[in-house]
């Protein structure tokens, strides 16, 4: 007998060989998702974007954030960040058309990210107010390493794609074919492995700066390649 059969048989025996009714299981699983407000934290009153920013800049997440009106203001925002941190004018861009099409003026940009990059600029698909997280999907315009190699990570997110809760992200993508990787990123990388004391910049970025864009942006990251169907 294969290990697979052995295990499945042992599981069934352990469950008194009861036959699982898939429909009943689904109904029960759905019922366990009811009344979410009773089991998740409350968001502060007011606009979602404010709750998101408050969270991102809180000591829990310890990132920095700013708002801009239009995506065309992003290069200037990046410039300000570099100046404030005394960084050279070289930045690596996530290879997304939305970013590459901007006028980067005096900044030297490079497509793609290298192991020793100091500043990387990316674009997140969603923000989550509950936790201050940024959500990335791997794809042709979103290499995963771009989120982890640079020392400073500057991430743009659209105001309209800020969601209230983690659950809202799950609902937003339900039924779509998942990308290879989904990264929910909440603050800079850190470790508490030496005596429990927190140090930022463990293996990933040491600094995270979030730029929220108010106006709608035309053109989507990876131009929506999602196809429904992976779920059963």
């Amino acid at each position: 007998m294969s290990a697979r059969e052995t295990i499945l048989n042992a599981v069934r025996a352990g469950l008194d060989s009861r036959k699982v009714d898939a429909e009943a299981a689904r109904r029960e699983a759905d019922a366990l998702l009811q009344d979410l407000d009773a089991i998740r934290p409350k968001l502060p009153a007011g606009a979602l974007v404010d709750a998101f920013i408050a969270r991102v800049t809180s000591p829990k997440v310890a990132a920095t954030a700013e708002r801009i009106k239009d995506i065309t203001e992003l290069p200037a925002a990046v410039r300000r960040y570099l100046d404030a941190h005394d960084l050279p004018p070289h930045v690596a861009l996530q290879p997304a058309a939305v970013l590459e099409d901007l006028d980067w003026v005096a900044l030297e940009t490079r497509d793609g990210v290298k192991p020793d990059d100091v500043v990387g600029i990316g674009i997140a698909r969603w923000g989550i107010a509950e936790t201050g997280s940024l959500v990335f999907h791997s794809g042709p315009e979103t290499p995963i390493l771009a989120n982890f190699l640079p020392l400073h990570h500057i991430v743009m997110v659209r105001e309209r794609s800020i969601l209230a809760f983690l659950d809202d992200y799950a609902v937003a993508v339900a039924g779509q074919r998942p990308p290879r990787n989904v990264n929910l990123i909440t603050g800079a990388s850190g470790t508490t492995d030496i005596e429990g004391s927190l140090v930022l910049g463990a293996h990933g970025p040491a600094h995270l700066h979030v730029v929220i864009v108010e106006n709608d942006i035309h053109g989507d990251i990876d131009a929506d390649k999602s196809t429904p169907g992976a779920s059963s």
Binding site: E130, T131, P179, R180, N181, V182, N183, G204
Partner: peptide, 14 residues
Amino acid sequence: DVTQYTTFHCGPKQ
């Protein structure tokens, strides 16, 4: 409340 990184891996390179 959450870890810095929550990652879902689904299959190989697409």
